[in-house]
């Protein structure tokens, strides 16, 4: 491929100004998030320039594919509220966010501008959102010496606190009143919401970065991870709050998820949920049978708060009033309806 590209370049000098980034992503190797990470790494390697200049208010954001356009918009707002200027790569927030262009175009609008990608090397810091993006940040560090910080997730109180603290430190600005208030709202929501999450058994299937973000957040709310199924290797898998992670498919998932209180995966999990009679929460790509997936925000204090509402409501909706039948002895002399004995 590299050879072909050189050949084309030689034959068409008139295209010299046109950037071409080559990424090797054969179908048989790696998962969706691997391809995403590779594509961004290659963009950085091909387009970012070394720089001796540091722009103190420029922050690079490298978001993994598990974040929605809505998430990116929220992240941009938070970063800007500290007076910092984010360059987001890739930036789906202006592109796949469902706006309507004035005229018909075969390609999407928006995204990160080439000139901005070239300036990645001038940033004070690269903020890496998701382990899948670490290689891209490392590549940039190698090219331009920009330090980076990896956030495994921006969902959950502690993760948000760390993020906000970093931005405050970096910008030397105080945390805006808005985010102080949002934090306090999140606390209140956690207190109200924890009743519905405590000791609930959750089955998740997602790519590693999303799986990590969601499962650790569920655990922070008091739920237990009954099973975790994922697509590809990641250092995060070691740190999941469950005994075992299965590299597998939806069949493995369905088998392991029986008896859970909640199933969490993308839209294709709906049949499994139906067969198992377990409530279902959609997360990850693709979500095609619900509207608004691109705008769901689950990062930041507000995003976390809303996620507690959304999932908490699924739990509440699934709550069934017990009937006399539920209390009937199951076997001779043994009354029914035993609560789960703790398994810690």
């Amino acid at each position: 491929m590299e050879g072909f590209l050189r050949l084309i370049r030689d034959k068409h000098p008139e295209l010299a100004a046109m950037e071409v980034v080559f990424v090797s992503t054969p179908d048989y190797s790696g998962a969706f998030q691997d391809g995403w990470g590779k594509a961004v790494t290659r963009m950085v390697e091909s387009l970012a320039k070394p720089s001796k200049v540091r722009t103190p208010w420029q922050v690079n954001i490298l978001p993994g594919c598990h974040l929605t356009p809505g998430d990116l918009e929220e992240i941009r707002e938070i970063v800007e509220a500290f007076g910092l200027y984010p360059i987001i790569l890739p930036d789906l927030s202006g592109s796949l966010d469902g706006h309507i262009p004035e005229s018909f175009l075969p390609t999407t609008l928006g995204g990160t501008k080439l000139e901005h990608i070239r300036k990645l090397g001038e940033a004070a810091l690269t903020i890496v959102l998701g382990e899948q993006m670490r290689p891209a940040a490392a590549a940039l560090e190698k090219i331009a010496g920009v330090p980076y910080k990896v956030f495994d997730k921006l969902t959950g109180l502690k993760a948000c606190d760390d993020f906000i603290a970093l931005l405050s430190e970096l910008s030397e600005n105080e945390v805006p009143a808005r985010y102080r208030r949002q934090r306090s709202q999140l606390l209140d929501t956690m207190l109200d919401g924890h009743f519905h999450f405590g000791r609930k058994r959750v089955a998740l299937a997602a790519e590693p970065d999303l799986l990590y973000a969601l499962s650790t957040w569920f655990a922070e709310m008091g739920a237990e991870i009954q099973c975790a199924v994922t697509t590809t290797q990641s250092p995060l898998l070691e740190r999941l709050p469950c005994d075992e992670v299965v590299l597998g498919d939806l069949e493995d998932f369905e088998r392991a998820a029986a008896g859970a209180d909640l199933l969490v995966t993308h839209s294709h999990g709906r049949q499994a949920a139906e067969r198992l009679g377990v409530p279902f929460f959609r997360a990850g790509l693709p979500t095609f049978d619900r509207i608004g997936a691109a705008h769901r925000v689950s990062v930041g204090y507000h995003g976390t708060r809303d996620l507690i509402f959304e999932v908490g409501n699924v739990f509440m909706a699934a709550h069934r009033e017990r009937t006399a039948e539920d209390f009937k002895p199951q076997e001779a002399g043994h009354a029914a309806a035993a609560p789960t004995v703790p398994r810690h």
């Binding site: 606190d161 603290a165 405050s168 945390v175 207190l191």
Partner: peptide
């Protein structure tokens, strides 16, 4: 008692 939120919500805010 076992819910992990208690430790989290008792942590002071970064500021």
């Amino acid at each position: 008692l076992a819910n992990p939120i208690w430790a989290q919500v008792r942590e002071p805010a970064p500021w």
